[in-house]
Design a binder for these strands. Structure first.
Lengths: 330, 330
DNA sequence: ACCTCCCTGGAAAGCGATTTCCCAGTCTGC
DNA sequence: GCAGACTGGGAAATCGCTTTCCAGGGAGGT
């Protein structure tokens, strides 16, 4: 393994000079020596040891992103946005997946802290469990105390900069739009009760119906994924419009209806939330609430990197997109 | 920032003892001291500095994965498989996305080398450009010379352990299956000519048709993504069956047909390649060649970590899955 | 009893960079 | 022509941890 010392010796200069040439510095180095060093580094195939640099400099150029599941397009979009932003800043990215285990999330933050990463991004919904959220908060606080920066996408519960999607409001607006089509009997495929994103969307939807003087929706809990939507859809009774709290659940519901010969939107209307790009060619096209996921990821990174003192919470509005999975009824 | 020295002082032991207690060692430490150290670490909130550990140990517990695009479900599945495998080994993951720029890929390998990561995984198709492949090879060789391990998923061109999907054979088998349904006039949405995965699939398909004594397909080149499939589908003339060299292109093609009122599979049959999970509820269900992507990712990591000397190339067969996007014709 | 041998604990030498000093030479202004 | 400011170069301290080496004490064998 070629070290800087090897390069310096080969070039006949000191370690200091070699370092200044190759790894940047405020100080100048004469053109002659500079060329010698560069040639030596090239000949030897020198690659700086980043661990050593990190140690010496006391800071790294790595950021960490923690998501639940990379194969979920929601997180993939978020992570992609953040990674593009990171790339423009010359930062490297460590990605951790928790597969929805909050303990893993805490463990990952600890590990990223140990890595002395420049910033940590937490994407993904919080759970209602106060104890576990508290421990995550503590771990994050410890990281920030030692100079780390952090941000999160989701609920503002961690005491860090947050990009908060307007889940309640978006779901409410969706409810009003659907009611505007004449629907009165609704069902909500509500996901797990302890998952805050799911709960907020469900609650926002129900609240809007209440304001409109419409009957409360049938609420069906279950997993937050495609199969959860599939299973929940089978329990719906007597609704003309079904709201799944995310798009992949909505797709599961559509699949369940298709199998049973229930036509969408003729027999029942279905809507989701997120506007996942991969689903843009789904048939029927899914009515949903669009969230600018990639932007949110990028924005979260910006917030994390930003030096400002007070903790910032930024709300991101969703936009209702009506497509063919819903129809007006008499 | 709390250092090991702080902990040692607080516990009243030497640096060496503290290190042995907290960060593992072959050596034993007496129960009394051990407890004191652990308590001190806990009170102070000590987190080992991994950069320092990496430097001192000369090896890290990080692996690198380089993919083209995380929002592409193909790469997400591959990366997810590799990340699960990494997690069971206690390894951390750095993910880099190149957005299909080969230069970025080379740069990322250099960076991962600088990080002294334990292993590097390259996922994603090679390009036909010899020069750029050569430079990537060189960079990889330099990394391996200094003790790094590497593996790749795709074409065996880099001189490293490889998990090679049987693109040619899979496409050939698909062609035979489709011919078995009575099709004789084919079109291939072939993707970019320089992308080897695309080229292999296209060639395998054409070769099988030739063997069967059928006319050569119409070959249409274009981008390797959904929009590429969409655009290419519009140029198809006079084929009863269209093979898109990956699933997302096939979805684009289906969208194009739907818009133009061409019914699938009644008017034209469509098939893809990969069997992307996210598309499992697509209508019509897509005929494709299934690749065990998550397993391939995990297997690639295994190969990379494995110490064996000779470079291993493992072929992975695809499985033809006939679904409703194709039909038998007279 | 005596001599190994094993075990535990500590001192100190790295790991590969960065960066602070210090030094000598060159410019500049007067 | 000279003091003072600048400049480019090198020696060495430093970052936080691991690990070798050494020392001392107790166990076990004869």
């Amino acid at each position: 393994m070629v070290t800087l010392e090897d390069v310096a010796r080969q070039a006949g200069v000191s370690l200091a000079t070699a370092s200044r040439v190759l790894n940047g510095s405020t100080r100048q180095v004469g053109a002659g020596l500079r060329a010698r060093v560069e040639r030596a580094a090239d000949e030897l195939g020198y690659r700086a040891n980043i661990a050593a640099q990190t140690l010496a400099r006391g800071s790294s150029n790595v950021i960490g992103i923690v998501v639940h599941d990379l194969t979920d397009p929601y997180f993939a979009a978020l992570a992609d946005g953040a990674m593009r932003a990171a790339a423009t800043e010359g930062l490297l990215v460590m990605v951790g997946t928790t597969h929805r285990d909050p303990e893993q999330e805490i463990a990952y933050v600890a590990t990223l802290n140990a890595q002395r990463v420049r910033a940590v991004l937490l994407a993904g919904s919080r759970v209602a469990d106060q104890a576990v959220t508290g421990r995550l908060r503590d771990e994050l606080a410890r990281y920030r105390d030692s100079g780390g920066r952090a941000a999160c996408v989701g609920q503002d519960l961690l005491g860090v900069d947050t990009v908060a999607p307007a889940n309640r409001e978006g779901a409410g607006e969706l409810a009003r739009a659907l009611a505007g089509l004449g629907h009165t009997r609704f069902a909500v495929l509500a996901g797990p009760p302890h998952l805050m994103t799911a709960a907020d969307r469900s609650a926002g939807f129900a609240a809007a119906l209440r304001e409109l003087g419409l009957p409360a929706p049938q609420v069906i809990h279950g997993p937050f994924d495609r199969d959860g939507g599939y299973a929940a859809a089978r329990q719906v009774k007597d609704a003309t419009c079904v709201f799944a709290v995310n798009d992949v659940m909505a797709v599961g519901a559509l699949a369940a209806y298709r199998e049973r010969g229930v036509r969408v939107p003729d027999d029942v209307s279905v809507a989701g939330f997120d506007d996942i790009v991969t689903l843009r060619d789904h048939v029927p096209a899914l009515t949903t609430v669009r969230l600018p996921l990639a932007d949110m990821g990028a924005r979260a990174l910006e917030l994390a990197l930003n030096e400002e003192e007070p903790v910032v919470v930024e709300h991101v509005a969703g936009e209702v997109v009506l497509r063919e999975s819903v129809r007006r009824i008499a």
